[in-house]
Write a protein that binds this DNA or RNA. Structure first.
Lengths: 199, 199
DNA sequence: CATTAGTAAGTGAACGTTCGTTCATTTAAG
DNA sequence: CTTAAATGAACGAACGTTCACTTACTAATG
């Protein structure tokens, strides 16, 4: 028996991400992908059932890598502020170092494929996050709020800043580069909003 | 001379949005769009140069409508808190009442078309916003920050909450409905973070 | 007011191309 | 020797776009 070439699957996925980032889902054709990956079109169908499966599998793998990076050094028992800092920095560095993967995941999240990637990974992650949030609320380190409101306020701003950076354009359309100072400033403002006021 | 049917262009754009929301940019074919809009494929090319032009023109029109709705009752001379409240509520209601348009614009923003819709509208809007922000900083109603950091903290959370609502799924994957209470809670937290602390 | 000439809107069929996928065959590793 | 990986050619379907043609509205004409 002949074994599968693990490299081949990796190259196919990576090239698929590159094509989607450059030309959108429209621009991902199996013929072009095969050429870019240096394989026959038929070879792709050894590793994936069809085009949709390729996209979804690639999305799931990237999601897993992203969560792994996010949770490096994180522990649900951390103080609220420290846990937030770890997650912000993990995310910021991962996104800035992997702009294509970030861009691909954002396209995926805003496409109809979104509904098909409700994974085990995501479920485990949100449980951990839920623990972290409820503990922080109980400890009066965080104002009481629904988990979705917490998420939106905590992380949506970071994602938005990174998107400005990756697009190289700010809100006015002029060139934009995200620096460490802005990340820390944004985080401190978010934390100020989220922490209960001392009476 | 025979005049153009203004309805026809509107129907084509609306159906294009519906198809993109349901099936992504992949799912927008000129043949299917023609059928859905009740016209011949060739008719679409009377109103638009090609498929890309159709998408971009539709995006520009929606952007204009969105900014109009956003700025209803807004004035750059308002107090920071009141201006923020007006914009949050305008946006929230417009998005919740026009989920397809919101979804379409979000797909567009995260696609490669993004680079092609740097419009006059957007430029005017960001100038107005810039005035509002700098005035608020001068008046010590707002901590000093780059406009992109302001934007990310101010509005990204609202967009995220609306997306949860439109997808009918929260961060955990369970059903989610956004209510007025959560909008106000989120806004108050954002404002708390953005306002300078009184010493 | 009725008729007509002119013009752009609107059409269905057709174009060549590219699409996703499969198949008969070859290649290479256990 | 066996078996699955890997292939290039080929499939029908669908794609974006165009073209020769008809329709319907405007405006000039009498």
């Amino acid at each position: 028996m002949r074994p599968r070439d693990a490299d081949k699957e990796r190259v196919i996925k990576r090239k698929a991400i590159e094509m989607i980032v450059k030309h959108g889902f429209d621009g991902l054709s199996m013929h072009k992908l095969a050429k870019a990956a240096g394989v026959s079109p038929a070879t792709i169908y050894i590793y994936f059932n069809d085009r949709d499966d390729l996209i979804i599998q690639t999305g799931l793998e990237e999601e897993l890598k992203m969560f792994d990076a996010t949770l490096k050094g994180f522990d649900a028992s951390m103080s609220f502020e420290e846990g937030m800092r770890v997650q912000w920095m993990n995310r910021a560095y991962y996104f800035l170092e992997n702009p294509d993967q970030m861009n691909f995941m954002e396209q995926l999240k805003h496409s109809p494929y979104h509904h098909e990637i409700g994974s085990q990974v995501k479920s485990n992650f949100s449980k951990l996050m839920s623990q972290f949030v409820h503990k922080a609320i109980d400890n009066k380190e965080l104002v009481p709020l629904p988990i979705e409101v917490f998420w939106a306020i905590s992380f949506a701003p970071l994602y938005q800043l990174v998107k400005f950076h990756i697009n190289k354009k700010g809100i006015t359309g002029s060139p934009y580069v995200l620096d460490a100072q802005s990340i820390h400033l944004a985080l401190s403002i978010v934390l100020k909003g989220l922490k209960p006021t001392i009476q």
